[in-house]
Design a protein around this nucleic acid. Structure first.
Lengths: 135, 135
DNA sequence: ACGCAATTCGCATCAATTGCTAATTAGCAA
DNA sequence: TTGCTAATTAGCAATTGATGCGAATTGCGT
C-alpha cells in the first residue's frame, strides 16, 4: 500500500473523495504488518475518531482492495484479514494466539496431478505455534 | 475417509449412532473428490431422502471432521468445503467456475523470515483457470 | 462560494452456521 | 422380541461477518 499522501492523490484521480475517515484509515494501515480484521481496525479508528461507523471502515477497505492497495485474505478465522503488503509473500498463522506473520519462500513449488490448469497465483499458509506462544 | 461399512463400526465404537441419514452421507462422501459445500451435500441428500434437515447434514459433517475422517476447508468462497481425502495433498481452485481440484507437490517449501515458529502443517492453494474453463 | 456527486452512518438485510428443544429412534441388555 | 435410555433429528431462533439501502452530509472541481 502506498503512503497516505500518495493514496490521497490516487483516490482523487479515480474520482473518489478523501475524507477524514479515509485519511485515518490510510494512516492506520500504512506499514501495518498485523493483518488486522475490520473489527480491529474499527476499534483503532474509534479511538482516534469516536463515532466513525463500522460501515465506513468496510467501505474504505473494499475501495482500497479494489484499487489493489491491499489484499483481503480469509484464513478461516471467522473474519477477513487485511494486508497492506501486496508484494509477493506468504503467511504463517499461530494456532494459539491467531497472529499472522509475513514469511517468504524461495520459490513457488510446482504442482502435479492436474493438466491444463493455468495458475495465476499460489498462496501458502503455514500453521503452527509462534515463538511467543512456545515460551 | 473410510468406507461406509468401516465408518458404521467406528461410529458405534465411539458411542455414536448410525442413522439412515448418516449412512446416506457416508455414501455421498465416500470417494467424493468434488469438495462439496454443506449446501450441495444437502441438495444431493434431499434427492435420495426428501425431508432430511440441513441441520443434520452439518451435524454429521462436524462429527466426521471431529473424528478426522474428513477435513473442513475454507477457500474464502463463502461457505466451507468438505474433503473426505485426508491424505497429504493440496488444492487448485478455479477462479472461473469455483471448482476445487486435488493436486500434489513434491515437498513442502521452506519458509524464511520468521524465527522460532514451529510449523505443524502447510496448506497451498493454487488459483487460476481450470482446463474446462480455458476452452 | 456553488452545486453535484460521493460519502457517511445507522439500520435492515443476508448468508453460513450453530444453539435449543420436543419428538423420535438406534442399539444394548434382558 | 421388548423395553429402556441416551443419541439423534428437524425445525426454528439466534448469531456473526458483511453488504444493501437511503436520508443527511460533505468533499472538491468549477
Amino acid at each position: 500500500m502506498r503512503s497516505p499522501a500518495e493514496l490521497t492523490q490516487a483516490f482523487r484521480q479515480t474520482g473518489l473523495k478523501v475524507t477524514p475517515q479515509r485519511q485515518l484509515l490510510f494512516r492506520l494501515l500504512h506499514g501495518n504488518t498485523s493483518h488486522p480484521s475490520a473489527d480491529v481496525l474499527f476499534a483503532l479508528a474509534s479511538e482516534a475518531m469516536p463515532g466513525i461507523s463500522l460501515r465506513t471502515v468496510y467501505q474504505t477497505l473494499n475501495d482500497l482492495a479494489t484499487m489493489g492497495e491491499l489484499q483481503s485474505i480469509d484464513f478461516g478465522t471467522g473474519s477477513a484479514r487485511f494486508d497492506p503488503n501486496v508484494t509477493d509473500h506468504q503467511h504463517a498463522v499461530c494456532n494459539e494466539c491467531g497472529a499472522v506473520h509475513d514469511v517468504h519462500v524461495s520459490r513457488a513449488p510446482k504442482m502435479s496431478g492436474l493438466e491444463g490448469f493455468d495458475i495465476h497465483d499460489a498462496h501458502i499458509v503455514y500453521r503452527g505455534i509462534c515463538a511467543d506462544c512456545a515460551s
